[in-house]
Write a protein that binds this DNA or RNA. Sequence first.
DNA 1: TGGTTCACTAAACGTTTGTTTAAGATTGTT
DNA 2: AACAATCTTAAACAAACGTTTAGTGAACCA
Lengths: 205, 205
Amino acid sequence: MNKKVNIKRDGPESRRRIINVAVRLFAQHGYAGTGMREISAEAEVNLAMINYFFGSKKGLLKEILDTFYAKYIEIALRELEQEGQMEIKLERFIHGTISFFDTYKDYLLVTINELPHDDPEILEHKASWAQKMIAVLEREICRPLAFEKGTVISSTVLGPLLTATMASRFLFAPVMDQVRPENIPKESLEEYSEMISTSLLKMIS
Amino acid sequence: MNKKVNIKRDGPESRRRIINVAVRLFAQHGYAGTGMREISAEAEVNLAMINYFFGSKKGLLKEILDTFYAKYIEIALRELEQEGQMEIKLERFIHGTISFFDTYKDYLLVTINELPHDDPEILEHKASWAQKMIAVLEREICRPLAFEKGTVISSTVLGPLLTATMASRFLFAPVMDQVRPENIPKESLEEYSEMISTSLLKMIS
DNA sequence: TGGTTCACTAAACGTTTGTTTAAGATTGTT
DNA sequence: AACAATCTTAAACAAACGTTTAGTGAACCA
């Protein structure tokens, strides 16, 4: 009758809990610096459950990276692949991305910090996502820019540049939070988003 | 008579070799992902020599980070702390930094990827270096910018933004090298440096 | 010549690592 | 009630981890 007498046996709930904990710990101590026992303890699941759900520690990382890349490219497609003035589309893309980075800041940190992770299996996924992003930027930003304004900038430069610029607040947050003087509060996300947006738009003008 | 009959006993030479190998491996596999046996093997020194010279693995990382931070702040002081027009000083700082990043790209990757490394001892060093950099930027860029042009941008935003933008090529290199189509060659460092420089100068204009 | 310092080595220390295994519990289906 | 599928467990595995120790020479200075 009462289905929830026993707290255990949550099924996909455990799976989700593992991911959430893993993302947080990977962002804090890095992938290699986080032990599976630490994850299982904080997620309150048995150690073996991680391998049961994800096959291996690497499988867990792969799923985290894929989740981030998929959402990122989805925003790019949604905001850039439509009719309209390029500057306006770019501005929406920037605001959307920064808002996404803020919500998924741990995912962002894991993704960036594992960029040099040279495992062939992981590298393949990263490259295919990056490929798509570069293609969108080439089509929607670089080509109009060269055609309308004569400004030539390679998409393989613009891609990293855009991402790094938008991510700067989150990337350096662990250090900057230590540095910022107490009397000067952190800028709000809206202020930051506006600054980056106007800066980047000036950049391509 | 012949002092070099025995190849061993190189003294500080071994020390330098350990650092060079460690920087490369830390950049490739991360700090936690690199074993001391891997370092000692590639540097062709005994395992115990690392602890002999640096006290611990953490001591080795600390020295690598300190080397990078010291050189970076030295460039900032040299190029920004002098008389002259702000834009020209900033341009020189950007070119100097990018050239430095290129020469020390492995140091750069280690530094950025270990940003979340929350060891108290490491964090202290990072924060004190960042503090200095922020102070220079505040004095030499942000204040003139607000005074002369009315453009208000916080140094705690500008610092990360500048560094992330200049580092973007090196940060994403492991992935972008996979993505770039064969027929399109990588931009030269000079081209990249020029692009970033003009972009950033437009940004604050 | 004896002694101190510096550079180096091999071996072992106790932990911790990711993964596997075999068994058990719970669930929905027949 | 029996079945299969799903979820969970404790225990063990070999391998790798960072660190320590005790000892060996070479170099230099007294």
